[in-house]
Amino acid sequence: MSGKLFRNFSFLSATLSFFLLVGIFAILFTYAQDAMHAFGIDFLFNETWEADEDDEGGVFGGFIPIVGTLLSTIIAMVIATPLAMGIAIFLTEIASPKISKGVSVAIELLAAIPSIIYGMWGLFYFAPIVQKTVGGDGVGLLTAGIVLAIMIIPFMASITRDSMNTTPLVLKESAYAMGATKFEVIKDVIMPYAKGGIIGSIILALGRALGETMAVAFLIGSVMSLPHRITDPTTSIPVLLANNFAEAQDLEMSAMYYLALVLFVVSFVIISAAKFYFFGKKAK
């Protein structure tokens, strides 16, 4: 009886999440119609974002925020992935249990800090450091990418650590018993064993970096210009949406839905591609 109830309930929740996904897509798609008709696929490659004087129409293209989103995310992932792996390996295989526990708590706390605080810290403390060391205006792609990396590292590291910790002791011991060194055990046994969890953590972090608004809004510069150097300010999709949503009307509003749709589709495609590619491989 209660088993049936539970089954129905979980079935309902599962279908609900599917309908939510479809529903969100449908709404974005509907509201984006005007912009899609006006600009078509060229929207993706057009650098202009200008409303007419009367605010009724204008020319809107998503190229700059799309590039800004992708670049800041790539910078963040390139920095965060190796560091997070290193931290996870340190915590599971190298540090003494006591140190490991202390560091783990610190990392979990870091993961719980709201992103706006990372944004403020990044702007007031970190941006000047970036400016001093590599030049530029302080705010820009690089600063946003680095702070994004700092935000997603704790999250990636703790999921990776958890999945590395699931490696059975006997499995590690068997590798040592064949004459493996610690490094070889990590590389050949623990990493492959934890692969699913590691990839999962990378995908989730990627999703978070793609959609992060607050911290990036503080740090990327929020200007509509294409970056030519890594330190240049630019903008990203979520930042543009957050900044312009209040005043936008008609066609600009529709263009923003178009951008949101692009972000939605890009996140969806990246995440499902990663999932199918890696999990498909693993299941083999």
Partner: peptide, 10 residues
């Protein structure tokens, strides 16, 4: 050494 449980590597 051969352990109690089989331990194939992944």
């Amino acid at each position: 050494m051969i352990f109690q449980k089989p331990t194939p590597f992944p």
